[in-house]
Amino acid sequence: MAGYDQIVGRADVAEAMMPDQVITEIIQTTPEDSVVLTRAKKVRLSAKKAKQPVLATLPEAYWVDGDTGLKQTTNVTWSGLSITAEELAVIVPIPNAVVDDSNVPLWEQVKPLLKEAIGKAVDRAALFGVNKPASWPAGIIPAAIAAGNVAKVGAFVSGTTGPTHDLASAFLTVAEKASAKGFAVNGFIARPGLNWRLRGLKDNQGQYLFGAATQGGNASLFGFNLDEARNGAWDAAVAEGIAIDWSKFVVGVRQDVTYDLFSEGVISDNTGKVVLNLMQQDSKALRVVMRVGFQTAVPRTRLDGGTFAYPAGVVTPAA
């Protein structure tokens, strides 16, 4: 009689009797938050529309002529800036069989990705003006460029530091331009990976300009937070980074991100044609909704010279 190790098909039988291990962890990147939703001034809206008072004219003081001179009057006025909450939403359908046969909690995996998608849409609209609602102002980057607060990498050479130092000089230049109009730059936004490029910059003596300094666990530039927009919203062909006064940018939240799971109903296209019938096709659909507004408050300052000033500056890439 043949030995056990000589039985034909022994390995096949063993493999059939031993089920494969299923790793119940999905490999994916950590969902990134929205830079704008995280850093901009946040207010709660009790209605679809709200008004934010913005200083329109500044008071002036006058010298009094002699002991009996008349004191002059001055005016202070404010204008109402409207902020409108617009709706962001998306639906993700998954067949019941896929959920039942899966060894991972699919809905819990999808939720943070949907929140990231919401943040991406907000950042693209607020920073670049891409697909922005009509009620939102111009994107921060095109508005700052229109105001003249812009510097191109490679256009500014300081001493003999070489072309790699131009990047730091460009950030200093745009921060100065915004500050010169009376705004207090208190943060920076950058394309993904720029943090490491900045840390590699050296001076004439070969010393690192920024090193590995961090602020609250985040990268910093000139002592202020440097936020990299890593949710897919950033267009590196348009800008390298932004110097910004976050206090002048307002996010109005009418409704936080909400999730609703449906087991009945139909999903149709814009012509009314039914694309998916949840009950008939044994599926469920997760709907995510957020209602949010965005506005730029540009008050008059003592340094704006009566001309349009903007509380941000943009560093653009080299040609």
Rank of each mutant, 00 (worst) to 15 (best):
S169M: 14
A85H: 00
D166A: 14
S102D: 03
R287P: 00
T258W: 12
Q6N: 14
T73G: 08
G223P: 08
G139K: 03
A147E: 02
D33N: 12
D245V: 09
Q21L: 15
G305V: 03
W107G: 02
V35P: 08
I267Y: 05
L114Q: 09
L201C: 01
S79Y: 11
E116A: 07
A236V: 11
G211I: 01
D33K: 14
V315L: 07
P59N: 12
V238W: 04
G216M: 10
D269A: 08
S247T: 15
R230Q: 15
L261E: 13
V13N: 09
L114M: 15
G241F: 03
Y208P: 00
V289M: 09
I118M: 13
L198C: 07
P133C: 10
K273D: 09
S263T: 15
G232H: 07
D245G: 10
G154Q: 07
T38A: 13
Q281T: 06
A134Y: 09
A40R: 00
L226I: 03
L45W: 05
I141R: 02
N204Y: 13
M17S: 10
G9H: 00
P163M: 14
G313I: 02
E60R: 14
A11W: 06
D256E: 15
S179G: 12
K42W: 13
G272N: 07
T160D: 12
G293Y: 06
G293D: 02
F262G: 04
V185L: 00
T173C: 03
P112F: 12
S34I: 09
S268R: 12
D166F: 02
G119S: 06
W78N: 12
E240N: 11
V98T: 13
V104T: 08
Q6E: 15
G9Q: 07
V35Y: 06
A89C: 08
A121P: 05
A126W: 00
R10M: 08
R44K: 15
V90Y: 12
G69M: 08
V251N: 08
I26F: 13
D304Q: 06
D304R: 03
R302P: 01
L172I: 10
F156Y: 11
W63Y: 15
V253D: 04
D282T: 13
P317A: 02
T271S: 14
D65Q: 12
V64M: 10
T38K: 14
L286H: 05
V315Q: 07
V104M: 09
P112Y: 11
G69R: 11
P163K: 13
G200V: 00
Q295W: 01
D203S: 09
Q72C: 04
Y259R: 06
V251K: 05
G232T: 10
E25Y: 10
A318S: 15
K51E: 13
A229K: 01
T84L: 04
A318C: 09
N231G: 11
M18G: 03
A125C: 04
M18T: 15
D260Q: 14
G241T: 05
G252F: 08
V314N: 03
A319L: 15
F210C: 00
Q52G: 05
D203W: 05
P59I: 05
E264C: 10
A89E: 11
P31L: 04
V315M: 09
G139Y: 01
L127F: 08
D227Q: 11
A180Y: 05
D65L: 11
E108I: 10
I27P: 04
L70T: 15
Q215T: 14
